[in-house]
């Protein structure tokens, strides 16, 4: 990580303490410090007084059909939470800046970059990683395997996930639609030809199943 301390571009002048004291901020009373046992559900229940979460938080995520609990901070990304706290290591951290797609995860049915999604914001949502996909002949992983849509394989989880999400939405994609559907993912080994073949083959196989 860079050593330089980059300045916040917001205009400075108030310290955190100032706003905690601020009488206009009802919410400040709800600021939780240290180990917070209150989860977002509770915050949502008390809608009139939205809770502010801080420090270490115990959260529960629905990952691949299971309830998984762990301790995070508000700044913990979904990706780092999956990988570092829940040992769900299918999604990979590559660019860590919403560019390469290796971290692609399906949240409430929609593929997103988990490197740029906060874990706290995912409570109550259905989180699917490729570990939950059908590995049989009708599944996307099988097609990637058979068509050699992978080399080193580090981008592959992202491609497989983006491909699965694409085919769930569009079971009959054209080649150009497959390309566009996978444009949020980057491979460095240069395995795109196998990927495109795999995606088209998976579309066929999924229909046949």
């Amino acid at each position: 990580m860079a050593a330089h301390d980059l300045k916040d571009d917001a205009v400075r002048g108030h310290s955190r303490r100032d706003f905690l004291r601020g009488s206009s901020v009802a919410a400040a009373t709800a600021v939780l410090t240290g180990q917070a046992t209150t989860a977002i559900e509770e915050a949502k229940a008390a809608e009139s007084e939205p809770k502010v979460l801080s420090g270490e938080l115990k959260i529960t995520l629905q990952v691949n059909g299971e309830s998984r609990s762990c301790t995070v901070e508000p700044r913990s990304t979904l990706l780092d939470t999956l990988r570092h706290r829940l040992d769900v290591t299918g999604p990979k951290r590559v660019c860590d800046r919403a560019s390469c797609g290796a971290c692609t995860t399906i949240v409430d049915g929609v593929p997103v970059y988990s490197c740029t999604t906060l874990a706290v914001a995912c409570q109550g949502k259905k989180i699917e990683t490729l570990e939950s996909f059908d590995t049989g002949p009708a599944g996307v992983p099988h097609a990637f395997h058979q068509h050699d849509g992978l080399m080193c394989g580090y981008c592959t989880p992202g491609f497989v996930t983006a491909c699965k999400a694409l085919l769930d939405k569009n079971p009959n994609p054209t080649l150009d639609e497959v390309r566009r559907g996978l444009d949020g993912n980057i491979c460095r080994c240069g395995t795109y030809i196998g990927v495109l073949e795999a995606a088209l083959a998976a579309a066929k196989a999924m229909k046949g199943a």
């Binding site: 290591t89 299918g90 999604p91 490729l130 992983p141 099988h142 395997h145 394989g153 989880p157 497989v160």
Partner: peptide
């Protein structure tokens, strides 16, 4: 190792 790679395992 293709299927293991393609299934995130």
């Amino acid at each position: 190792d293709g299927l293991a790679k393609a299934s995130g395992k």
